[in-house]
Design a binder for these strands. Structure first.
Length: 199
DNA sequence: ATATCGATGCCCT
DNA sequence: GGGCATCGATATG
């Protein structure tokens, strides 16, 4: 047998953001071996008023206009980092990674986050980046190469959907996706009945 | 349980 | 100057 390549390849990302956002639910993300199962994502389309790319290219969002399968890492509210997967057939599409169920490297996550509770390590886009050590240094980096590793899920999970968090434009679009039954969401999915994380 | 607020950078008008 | 793809601390029911 050929040596198995664990990570997804570039073609994984060459699909529309809503497809990729759903495919990533149940997949695993590691950064230098620290990570877990992706349980919450949001899709942002190129013609989406809520997308950072909507008003054109700037220094901050340049990576969104780069190759599919690379990272778009931006600073949020001046102090947090957020990690996106650049995807789609058009330029300017991305999927925001909002929450993981931590599996590997918990001591490193706890050290970086300054908290011990596993539910508070990666339950939110800013928390996830802090726990995995993702910063602007990885903006534009390819996701199919170290330090990144994304492993596709083995079986199709139950996926729930809802409104995106913290957006005011196109707020009605149900482009937030979650792993059914997870207790590691950044916020509950209303109406689909799953619990919120602590505090 | 929800509400409000401050921190802080960058892009918009 | 205002508005964010946020978080944690504080206040209050």
């Amino acid at each position: 047998m050929k040596s198995a390549r664990y990570g997804v390849n570039r073609s994984f990302f060459a699909r529309p953001p809503r497809v990729v956002a759903r495919e990533l639910i149940g997949a695993s993300l590691f950064v230098a071996g620290v990570g877990g199962v992706i349980v919450e994502t949001e899709a942002y389309a190129h013609d989406d008023p809520a997308s950072h790319s909507f008003s054109g290219r700037t220094a901050r969002n340049a990576a969104m206009f780069g190759e599919t399968g690379t990272a778009y890492v931006y600073r949020s509210y001046g102090l947090h980092w957020c990690l996106n997967v650049v995807c789609g057939a058009e330029r300017g599409c991305a999927v925001l990674l909002r929450a993981l169920e931590p599996l590997a490297g918990l001591p490193a996550m706890q050290e970086r986050r300054g908290v011990a509770n596993p539910r508070l390590l990666c339950s939110g886009p800013g928390r996830l980046c802090q726990a995995l050590g993702v910063t602007g240094a990885l903006d534009g980096a390819p996701l199919d190469q170290p330090p990144f590793l994304i492993v596709a899920r083995a079986t199709a999970p139950k996926i729930i959907a809802g409104r995106r968090i913290g957006v005011s434009r196109a707020a009605e679009k149900p482009w937030r996706f979650g792993l059914g039954g997870s207790s590691f969401f950044s916020k509950p999915f209303k109406g689909t009945g799953r619990a919120a994380p602590l505090s």
